[in-house]
C-alpha cells in the first residue's frame, strides 16, 4: 500500500463519481506522468467514469472472504539457491540505454 496520505481528499463514494482537477493532478504526480493541459479534462471525465464503474463492487457482500492475489490456490512462491547463475552482460543491456558513460547510466544531476 502506498503511504502518501492524505493526498486525496476523502469524498463520499457514489456511483457517478466525479473527480476534480486537483485529483487528476495528484494522481499524475504519483504516477510520474506529465500531462498536457488538453489531456486533463479528458482524464477527469474518463477516470470519473471508470471509478463509477468499479464502485459497482460495493454491491458484493465480501464479509469473511479472503482477498485473492494468485489465481491458483495453494501455489507457493518458489525460491532458488542464493548462487550466481548469470554472467555480467551490462554492455549488452546498456545498448538500450538513452545515455551511458563508463558503464554508468547518466541522469540529470541530483545533488548540487
Amino acid at each position: 500500500m502506498y503511504d502518501f496520505a492524505p493526498i486525496f481528499p476523502k469524498f463520499q463514494r457514489h456511483y457517478h463519481m466525479s473527480l476534480r482537477r486537483s485529483d487528476i493532478d495528484n494522481i499524475a504526480r504519483l504516477a510520474r506522468l506529465a500531462l498536457s493541459e488538453a489531456e486533463i479534462p479528458v482524464y477527469i471525465d474518463s477516470l470519473s467514469r471508470i471509478i463509477g464503474l468499479v464502485s459497482e463492487l460495493d454491491r458484493a457482500a465480501t464479509g469473511g472472504v479472503e482477498p485473492m492475489s494468485h489465481p491458483l490456490a495453494g501455489q507457493k512462491q518458489r525460491q532458488r539457491a542464493d548462487a550466481v547463475t548469470e554472467s555480467d552482460q551490462h554492455e549488452l543491456y546498456q545498448r538500450n540505454a538513452p545515455q551511458v558513460l563508463a558503464g554508468l547510466y547518466l541522469v540529470p544531476k541530483v545533488i548540487e
Binding site: 492524505p6 493526498i7 504516477a31 477516470l47 471509478i51 468499479v54 465480501t62 479472503e66
Partner: peptide, 25 residues
C-alpha cells in the same frame, strides 16, 4: 492513473482489497 488511484492511501481497502475479495467470489 486508474491503478495509481485504486492503490493510493484511503482507497486501497475500498477498491483494491475489495476487488481481490470479489475476485475470490
Amino acid at each position: 492513473m486508474t491503478g495509481t488511484y485504486v492503490l493510493s492511501a484511503g482507497y486501497y481497502d475500498a477498491y483494491y482489497l475489495k476487488a481481490q475479495r470479489v475476485r475470490q467470489l
